[in-house]
């Protein structure tokens, strides 16, 4: 029973992270389309933000594995 609940939790964490990273990607694409000359700055910040969101999702995943 606990195993199933933690699996659902892991899935929810992945959905959240997917939404977050998707939004970052969409906004970054928009920004690049508006200002193509700022592409390198935008890309670096996009990866940084995606990495930070990924960190939160990973904590949730690992917690769900440990419990």
């Amino acid at each position: 029973m606990i195993g199933t609940i933690t699996s659902v939790g892991a899935g929810l964490a992945v959905i959240g992270a997917g939404l977050g990273i998707g939004l970052i990607g969409a906004k970054a694409m928009e920004a690049i389309a508006r200002q193509p000359q700022a592409v390198s700055d935008i890309r670096a910040n996009m990866i940084l933000m995606a990495a930070l969101i990924e960190g939160v999702a990973l904590i949730a995943l690992v917690l769900s594995f440990f419990v």
């Binding site: 990924e54 990973l58 904590i59 690992v62």
Partner: peptide, 12 residues
Amino acid sequence: IKPFTLMLRLFA
């Protein structure tokens, strides 16, 4: 938490 996520991100 900062180094902890560094550890997890690369590993995972």
